[in-house]
Amino acid sequence: MIGMEIIYAALGLFFFYTAYSALRRGAGQGAALAGFWGLYGLHFIAGSVFNDFSNGLIIIGMTFLALCMRSRSLMPTVVETLPLSGSVLAGGEDGAKKSMVRLLLPLLVVPLVAVLFVLAAPWMHWHGRSLIDPKRANQIGYVLATLAGLVVAWWRLRPPAGLPFASGSALVCRVGWPLVLPQILATLGGVYMAAGVNQQLGVLLTIILPPGNELAAVLGYTTGMMLVSALVGNAFAAFPILFGALGLPVLVQSFGLSPAPVAAIGMLCGFSGTLLTPMAVNFNIVPVSLLGLQDRFAVIRAQIPAAFFVFAGNTLLLYVLTFFEGHSSP
């Protein structure tokens, strides 16, 4: 069975290679970079073998090394242009058209193969045993799709051997420590849940809001979804808290709204919050380092109009629905 362990091991090796090339380049922060990516590689290769405490120590060690790297990777001193070589682009208009197809093809192969794989995964059996881990079919499909994309790229572009690794780990170094943040934020969600933070926040909100007022309840619910999503950087973590604390007992059970719009509109208010926070790292901070932007909040700033407009519209929509108590089906 193809499980996640093979993929983790391969990714671990890739991060080891990144550490090695950082060390070879040396230059000041080389040691911190090498240590950071080396520890991360170890976490991937041996994470399942180590006990929880050792894995925790690895994450703490990486955090201190990230402090040594400062946020240089977030605010590059020199904004480089997107690296270009244009080596394939020769031969005028006709050649350019051909190379565009050649370059876009591998990029489009990825989503196509990923979707096909997820659809086909339930039928992949061998002597009654599933060939792939069904719980992680999405991730496995994605990895196989990127490999398929690489094969197509290799066939059409003939890059020098070793280039995928070299350029891939150069990109890893450019993104820097924010690369690990999506994973660590999911960790934070798990820790909060285990420590009971979610329940406490729900209890607190029901105490604060005045009882029996539709507008206050709607505003408390939608604003709460937006703020908690912004705080933890994830609407998925905020939804069970606020739906359980306000959505179901107050909006649905007291005011007679249908549960479906309350849930759906609440989740979308959470999405507005996610667009406004540096805690939603892979959406709002990773592109800042990926595109070499100077202003850490540049992407969030560009999202403010859409986030607030959609939030206001959704809050209004939910409030209007309270006038049709019990008739707001579906």
């Binding site: 996640m4 993929i7 983790y8 391969a10 990714l11 890739f14 976490h43 991937f44 994470g47 399942s48 180590f50 006990n51 929880d52 405490f53 050792s54 894995n55 925790g56 120590l57 690895i58 994450i59 703490i60 591998p106 990029l107 990825v110 992680r136 991730q139 994605y142 990895v143 990127t146 490999l147 994309g149 690489l150 790229a153 280039l163 995928p164 690794f165 070299a166 350029s167 891939g168 780990s169 150069a170 990109l171 890893v172 690369l179 690990v180 999506p182 994973q183 660590i184 999911a186 960790t187 934070l188 969600g189 798990g190 820790v191 285990a194 892979n282």
Partner: peptide
């Protein structure tokens, strides 16, 4: 911390596309 970090490793799988982008 270690327990939840280890079980959240699947999220970082999205970075396997970087060699292709490179």
């Amino acid at each position: 911390l270690g327990h939840y970090a280890t079980s959240a490793r699947y999220i970082s799988v999205m970075w396997t596309i970087l060699p292709l982008i490179g």
